[in-house]
Write a protein that binds this DNA or RNA. Structure first.
Lengths: 155, 155
DNA sequence: CCGTACTTTCACGTAAACGGCAAGGTTGCG
DNA sequence: CGCAACCTTGCCGTTTACGTGAAAGTACGG
């Protein structure tokens, strides 16, 4: 074990926008739009200026799509969560730029904080949804009681 | 106990659109728009055709707002969930229109099914969010491990 | 090296979800 | 009954999140 193995996914292979978009269930247009909003930057550009995406880009796109579709966050809100993550990218480079352990430690701890922040936002959302479920279950229970009352008055 | 007490909230008092909207944290414009989309119909209209809302309308508006803000459903999706609920309104009238217990029972059972449907949709959403939390926690854990590795190589 | 498929940027178009204004009617306190 | 405050129905404007070309460049199998 010579390295703490940052970069365990060494980019894999690079793909162009259509393939990348299809892979995560988006359109090329959306992917470009997300880039325009600063949600992600493709890993590289080809000689002829084609956008090239790697595995971590796909992961990121999937996460964005999840936040949009599942969590219902606006792209602006996602940008907030990702601004954090953009710092992570810079942190990634910074991690390799230094060999100072205390510096590396600081970078990793920052990353932890950002993950915690994302988790907290998601759980807040889950909490509100759970409250709605509880509320609906309460109404359901009320209706169930009425059915019972009806059944017993029936008898 | 002479009645199974449907209508435990006997409309309370009626309010006009501004008060009603403010009560649930919406604008009058939004409330009218929701009506236009068929999400709700005010309990009554005044002599001069003013919209008048009662307590159940407020409850409904709050639920709609929750689905929109918390769950992130589109108004079209909410309309789907509420089409169910529109039938509930009709069922409410039908409940009072009949005294046939089997008929009343059927109406109440339908209502139960609709609540179950709403609960299921919310829980599906919760499940997806939880998956994202799990995923993020996994990444968090990976970072935590790196921090430990760094700390031990430090020593 | 040629054609076809993919890509680039730029720009205009669109559906959803309202905001805001106009022109006129309604409420209700004084 | 007078008038300020609220309401009504249009109707056009705006933001978000893309769709849809247009014009031009790039990639690459035959």
């Amino acid at each position: 074990m010579t390295d703490t193995q940052e970069e365990q996914a060494p980019a894999g292979r690079l793909m162009r926008i259509q393939e990348a978009a299809a892979e995560v269930g988006l359109t090329p247009r959306s992917v470009r739009y997300y880039e325009e909003l600063g949600l992600l930057r493709p890993a590289a550009r080809s000689e002829g200026d084609y956008r090239l995406y790697d595995d971590t880009d796909l992961e990121r796109l999937r996460f964005i799509k999840g936040l949009r579709d599942d969590a219902g966050f606006s792209l602006a809100e996602i940008a907030q969560l990702m601004e954090d993550d953009a710092a992570r990218e810079r942190g990634h480079a910074a991690f390799h730029a230094t060999t100072d352990p205390s510096e590396r430690s600081r970078i990793l701890r920052d990353r932890l904080v950002r993950y915690d922040h994302q988790i907290a936002m998601l759980q807040t959302k889950i909490g509100r949804l759970q409250a709605m479920v509880d509320e609906t279950e309460a109404k359901r229970a009320g209706t169930a009681v009425k059915i019972d009352q009806l059944a017993s008055s029936e008898r």
